[in-house]
Design a protein around this nucleic acid. Structure first.
Lengths: 339, 339
DNA sequence: TTTATTTATGCAAACGTTGGCACAAGTGAT
DNA sequence: ATCACTTGTGCCAACGTTTGCATAAATAAA
């Protein structure tokens, strides 16, 4: 970037050795005050900026963390990124963002990229398509700190930060039941995601506790997590054409929630009279929807912060860490008119 | 990252020189087929990954681009990032994202960071607070390609990608006028942003063409671009307490639009009966709001793509580029029930 | 056979920074 | 005046990769 001035340039200009200049700039080791000042002054005057690449090459530390998530333009992940950034910025780490767009292939390619950049650690939320975790295991085994968030896996032993998905779903279903809904459908993401399983678990638990045995016809999976509008459309179509169509629907992700609301609107279905609705969403103002939407809100910003704190802790730990933590953040049910 | 295998390791293991291995891997220069195969095989078997840092240090090219924008969790910017990523990924560039949160100080610090990482180029959308551009000029003069998008400046001569802000605002105001509204207020961002000026220009033009002279009382600036909820609250308060309160309000950014809608809701103001509303917004489903919101939608994804294409073109150009382009993308007015 | 040419490989320096080791000059104790 | 430290600096190798130049071996032309 530009033809920046280097330590060598300063050394030559001032008739010193490289090391003296380096040490003067770092303030380390024994350097006379006079030299230090002379160097600093020259450096400032010529806009000296250390070459971080060279430093990283030397130190094998890049002070950067790689983030692997599925989609940036998504309320939930955007807030998570904000949380990540808030910690990383203060601790002077760089954030290198990559999105998998739910694709396994792309996840691998991004991981390779980040690896080549020698990131000091990885913050990962798994892609929907991912079932084979050997690429993560490979890095993890070779000592790269990884923290999983949101979409996690039990197959790799490291820190994880998740939301209380089961609890959030449970609360939402409990609420729907209390309001008299009995035929509650669930539109969710791919069944191999941890969040899908946990949310389904909360859904089932609430139903069973109320003496209702879950009806498999009421559970619709979107393999692409709602990335494709038609998969949500199709799920709703199927639900509505059942002999006993549901009287409420619980949606499992931001994208699915918004899509569902939008599709129900287009079909002229009155909410909550014909069909009640509640869903996971991190949209900033769900009260503005027609009708105001009952949501399970996740502390996304907090999740980003927590994951990043844990990761940096791992990176900077002197001894290898063996005891890992699974941090579970609370999910908040906010009841509005849609249910 | 990990204890990765290097070219040196391969060379030693195979009894070759570093250069032979390097050339075999790159497929460059004259290398016998036998050697090439032997090297590739060994490299694959041991998961060799080139150290991108070392390559960058040598080549003075990092194949990464730095992005400087104000806020990631914002529909508009999130979509822009998606556009940036779509091009960068295909051209094999890394995206290093930083957010200024509208702060000048933070913008500078991020810029320093990116500079130290030797990014090959910069994609910039200015922070609200920024008026002094000398830090950008410094990099630009030293040869770092920069492309500005959305919030641009005339003071630095380089490629720019913007939306037809004046045209978008003009169309919205024209529409409000056609629907009989005459007292149209405008809640907007800080006056020193290019987008603010341009949107105001379209607003004024439409009014003047219809024989209405703009009323300064109807124009309210939010210095922090709506980052602080109270600034929007205050703007609305002031508008409503005017002797002749407006009959319509036109909002100039995603955040301000959502905040305004939310505040009007809380105050129980009926839209559009008491106050009509239209505003810039990139929310995915404004038809879901109460009432469905008339919006000026920006092609954010396209903007990200266009800016990135121009930047990479600059980076990879052999001759220094002197003729710069200002690309203006159309803004789309989508009329809904709020107006 | 000798000389010229091609082909494949090796050597070493460079990118910018850091840090171990060495060493000269200065200080103080004996 | 000698010895033992301390202080401030310089030298050089290393991080992993690339590349111009040199060179050995193989081939072709004389």
């Amino acid at each position: 970037m530009g033809d920046a001035i280097t330590i060598k340039d300063i050394a030559k200009a001032l008739g010193m050795s490289y090391s003296t200049v380096s040490r003067a700039l770092k303030g380390s080791y024994k350097i006379s005050e006079a030299t230090r000042l002379k160097v600093k002054e020259y450096a400032d005057a010529h806009h000296y900026r250390p070459n971080l690449l060279a430093q990283s090459l030397k130190s094998k530390k890049s002070r950067s963390i790689g983030v692997l998530l599925c989609s940036i333009p998504n309320n939930f992940f955007a807030e998570v990124i904000n949380g990540i950034d808030s910690i990383a910025y203060n601790k002077d780490y760089h954030v290198i963002l990559t999105q998998s767009l739910e694709s396994y292939e792309r996840e691998i390619k991004n991981l390779e990229h980040l690896a080549g950049r020698l990131v000091d650690g990885l913050l990962v939320s798994l892609a929907t398509e991912t079932t084979d975790l050997s690429h993560f295991r490979q890095w993890h085994d070779s000592g790269v700190p990884i923290v999983f968030f949101d979409r996690v896996t039990d197959l790799i032993n490291t820190h994880k930060v998740v939301v209380d998905n089961a609890g959030g779903a449970y609360k939402a279903i409990q609420h729907l039941l209390e309001n008299g809904y009995r035929k509650i459908a669930h539109i969710t993401s791919s069944p191999n995601l941890s969040i899908t399983q946990e949310r389904l678990e909360g859904y089932n638990k609430a139903l069973l506790e109320n003496g209702i045995s879950p009806n498999p016809d009421y559970i619709r999976y979107c393999q692409h997590g709602g990335m494709l509008p038609e998969e949500v459309e199709q799920a709703i179509e199927q639900l509505l054409s059942l002999p006993h169509p549901p009287d409420a629907v619980f949606t499992a992700s931001d994208r699915i929630t918004i899509s569902t609301l939008s599709i129900l609107h287009k079909r002229g279905i009155r909410i909550p009279q014909q069909l009640a609705m509640a869903g996971f969403s991190n949209f900033s103002a769900p009260e503005l929807f027609t009708p105001p939407l009952t949501t399970v809100r996740q502390p996304a910003f907090e999740m980003g912060r927590a994951a990043t704190e844990l990761l940096i802790q791992l990176i900077e730990s002197k001894q290898p860490v063996t005891a890992f933590e699974k941090k579970v953040l609370p999910a908040e049910l906010i009841i509005r008119a849609s249910s």
